[in-house]
Design a protein around this nucleic acid. Structure first.
Length: 383
RNA sequence: GGAGAGAUGGCCGAGUGGUCGAAGGCGCACGCCUGGAAAGCGUGUACCCUGCGUGAAGCGGGGUCGAGGGUUCGAAUCCCUCUUUCUCCGCCA
């Protein structure tokens, strides 16, 4: 969420920057500013009324004490009128605040100055590559063919137990999965990240805090009876640790990591290109999160990119690092690097990790305060 | 699931209808004192919205004592709902 103050004072700048993200902010900012003016005027009127009421209440107490009950009754009658007027204004004020909030959260984060304009992945910037891409092999097999019949990763069994997108890992595959999780956590520990095991279900407030609600509700699994959501990423519980918190500068930077299973409904994004493990409803991920002072958030981003790169190197995978263009970036991100690994079996690049700086966008929404911004990255242990 | 007791500032802890954003203590910051420190003394020490002011300092108004609603001229204090913590009972393992 962008700070209202920034919208009030630098609306032209915001409109200009959001063009990089192909977002036309002009109409909505116009409505935000109008609603905000009205809101402030109302606030002033309401405050004056409340001040009057406070004064009257004090006088009434005094009058009763002095035995002037006649005058006290008269003053009481005055308060009835003011209260009725106040009630009307408050209703309008509350409606306006809700409307304003709805509009402000529709504005995406501003892209950082290095972010290239563009609409599709074609416009992304290649930063660097590493590792060796194996020679194309005519006999190559994608993992779903390679694994077929082995039962190591059993998609059909998953369908029996749960449904499509919930594979069962068995024997060596289960061990490999466990080993990868441990590998990422152990490396993270060495790199100075603090390990946490958060709940994998969150309440509504947390889902709002990181922006899954209200817009992405359809992407989450929900426990209707309890009002809880299965997390789509550990980013949700881990970032919400800091919701409504005020950190002191010396507590920064905070560096957390968490392994969790992740759950995504992937409504509407199913297709022929997402076979096998390429897109799942349940998968495992080790998330890393930093909360940084705004002055060095981009140093933090680079640090995380280098860290993730070291992991990919240790695994000896051929990779490339890509800076996403405005159109390909997420709503909340100011700048994102994607890590892609070349999947020889499929003969194409697959995203394995995404590292973003959210600047203060998430922190604002979370009411995480004391001059800091949040930086976030995720490293994924699946293929 | 049932019964009871709690939820107050960074922490502890007073406060049962008005003068309470809230006593007292601890912690922290600054100052005095000291060769230096401790002790002592003094001052200050939440957040949000808003008006004047340069988005400083400062001053003013409003709101916030778990959350929301209600009673009242007036609520931290009374009532209701919810959340949550603790104790006891039950249930499940």
């Amino acid at each position: 969420m962008l700070p209202l103050k920034l919208i009030q004072e630098n609306s032209d700048f915001i409109i200009e920057r959001l063009k990089i993200k192909n977002f036309d902010a002009k109409p909505i900012i116009g409505r935000i500013l109008a609603a905000d003016d009205r809101r402030r005027a109302l606030q002033t009127s309401i405050d004056i009324q409340l001040a009057d009421l406070n004064n009257l209440a004090r006088q009434i107490g005094q009058l009763f004490k002095e035995g002037k009950s006649q005058e006290a009754e008269e003053a009481k009658n005055q308060t009835f009128q003011i209260k009725e007027q106040n009630r009307i204004l408050k209703e309008e004020h509350a409606a306006l605040e809700a409307e304003l909030q709805d509009m402000v959260v529709q504005l995406p984060n501003l892209p950082y100055e290095l972010v290239p304009a563009g609409k599709t992945p074609e416009d992304n910037q290649l930063i660097r590559t590493g590792g060796t891409i194996p020679e194309p092999d005519v006999n190559r097999k994608a993992h779903w063919d390679l694994l077929a019949g082995s039962g190591l990763i059993d998609f059909e069994l998953g369908v029996k137990l749960t449904g499509a997108g919930f594979p069962v890992y068995q024997r060596e595959a289960a061990r490999l999965q466990r080993a990868l999780i441990n590998f990422f956590l152990d490396q993270g520990l060495k790199a100075g990240f603090t390990e946490v095991q958060p709940p994998i279900m969150v309440n509504e407030a947390s889902a709002y805090g990181t922006g899954q609600l209200p817009d992405k509700e359809a992407q989450m699994y929900r426990s209707e009876a309890d009002g809880l959501y299965l997390i789509p990423t550990a980013e949700v519980p881990v970032t919400n640790i800091f919701r409504d918190e005020i950190l002191s500068a010396e507590q920064l930077p905070v560096r957390y990591m968490a392994y969790t299973p992740c759950f995504r409904r992937e409504a509407g994004s199913w297709g022929s290109h997402v076979r096998g493990l390429n897109r799942l409803h349940q998968f495992d991920k080790v998330e890393i999160v930093q909360v940084r002072h705004p002055d060095n958030s981009y140093a933090g981003l680079e640090e995380m990119v280098n860290y993730v790169e070291s992991l990919v190197n240790l695994l000896e995978l051929p990779y490339r690092i890509i800076r996403l263009c405005g159109g390909d970036m997420s709503f909340t991100s100011a700048m994102t690097y994607d890590f892609e690994v070349f999947a020889a079996g499929q003969g194409r690049w697959l995203e394995v990790s995404s590292v973003s700086n959210f600047e203060s966008f998430q922190a604002n929404r979370l009411k995480l305060r004391f001059r800091e911004k949040a930086t976030n990255a995720l490293a994924s242990p699946t293929p």
